[in-house]
Structures are given as structure tokens and as C-alpha cells.
Amino acid sequence: MPREEGRKVIASNRKARHDYHVLDTYEAGISLMGTEVKALRMGRASLVDGFAQIDGGEVWLEHVHIPEYVQGTWTNHTPRRKRKLLLHRAEIDKWAGKVRESGMSIVPLQLYFEGGRVKVEIALVKGKKEYDKRHALRERQDRREAERAMSLRQNR
């Protein structure tokens, strides 16, 4: 069976970039059961409430919803179980010190297949204040209006 080429996105957490300032990102492998991979191949997952915790020198992904595989039997997985992330020790130690600081946390941004393997893009984030969110929305609206005006000007 040929290997998959490129990156096939399964799920992305678009709200994370709205709610947090992304400071640093890593690509991590994820330890999954067979029925979880089959459910992901069907393109079903949700990262909305997901976060990662460092516990005992290991990083665990929590509250990520991968629904049960429809054709699975008694070997099926539980949808919101803790899943181990596969990172190098130096990366874990680097982020462990930063997470201890107040206001920092680790959230998943994307879940995808790369070369036939499931990967998750995790980010070290700091929460945004309400006025930061409003400011970002306003900047996006202003940019869209400017692009719209420039395209109308060019089409004339």
C-alpha cells in the first residue's frame, strides 16, 4: 500500500488563535489505538476543548474528542481519553518551565496525517484579554475593507 503524501488536515482549532496569543509551536506524534486511527481516517475529530498537560515528564493531550469507530467491536476506544504526545525530552523540559509561569498553557491547533502518521500541532499560548480580541477583529475587518476597496479600484 503506498504511503500518503503531503499533509491531510483532520481537525483544526480555529478558536484557539482567537482566544490566545500563540508564542511557540511544535509538531508532536500521538499515541493512538487502532480504532482511533480508523475514526480519524473518516475525518472525524474535535479539538475545541482540548489542552495538554505535563505530568511526570510526559505530555498528555486531554479532552480531545475522537468519536468511536462505527464498525469497532468491544476493542473500541473511549472518545475523550487521555492520549500521550510523543516529544523529545528537551522540548518537554523547555515547555515545562514556561507552563509553570502564570497564564501559560498548551493547546492543540491542528490534527493531521503526515506520511500516513497522525500528528498534532501544539502551541504554547497565553490568554488574550477581551479588548485584545476586539482589537484583532477590528484589524481583520479593516484589512478586508481595504482589500475590497483596492480590488474595486483595480477592476475599473
Rank of each mutant, 00 (worst) to 15 (best):
P2M: 11
P2D: 08
P2C: 05
E4C: 04
G6C: 02
G6T: 01
R7K: 12
V9H: 03
I10G: 02
N13H: 05
N13P: 01
R14F: 06
R14Q: 00
K15N: 08
A16V: 00
H18K: 12
D19H: 09
Y20H: 09
H21M: 05
L23R: 00
T25L: 02
Y26W: 13
Y26M: 12
I30N: 05
I30P: 06
S31G: 06
S31K: 13
L32D: 00
L32R: 04
M33L: 08
G34Q: 01
G34T: 05
T35Q: 04
T35W: 04
E36M: 10
A39G: 07
R41H: 10
G43Y: 14
G43C: 15
R44E: 01
A45R: 11
S46E: 07
L47C: 12
L47R: 12
G50K: 03
A52F: 03
A52V: 04
A52S: 11
A52T: 02
Q53F: 01
Q53W: 00
Q53E: 13
Q53Y: 00
G56F: 03
G57Y: 03
E58N: 13
E58W: 09
E58C: 07
V59C: 07
H63E: 12
H65K: 12
E68R: 15
Q71M: 13
G72E: 09
T75V: 14
N76T: 14
H77L: 05
T78C: 08
T78Y: 11
T78A: 15
P79A: 13
R80Q: 08
K82W: 13
K82V: 03
R83L: 15
K84G: 05
L85W: 08
L87T: 07
L87D: 05
H88T: 08
H88I: 10
R89F: 08
A90C: 01
A90P: 05
I92S: 01
D93Q: 10
K94V: 04
K98S: 05
K98L: 15
V99D: 04
R100D: 09
R100T: 07
R100P: 03
R100N: 07
E101W: 02
E101V: 02
L111E: 01
Y112F: 15
F113V: 04
E114G: 03
G115H: 05
R117T: 01
R117C: 02
R117P: 01
R117L: 08
K119H: 13
I122R: 10
L124V: 10
V125M: 03
K126R: 15
G127N: 10
K129M: 10
E130I: 15
E130L: 15
E130M: 13
E130D: 14
E130Q: 13
D132F: 11
R134T: 10
R134W: 14
L137M: 06
E139Y: 09
R140C: 06
R140F: 10
D142K: 14
D142H: 08
R143N: 11
R144Q: 13
A146N: 08
A149H: 09
S151Q: 12
S151E: 12
L152P: 02
L152G: 06
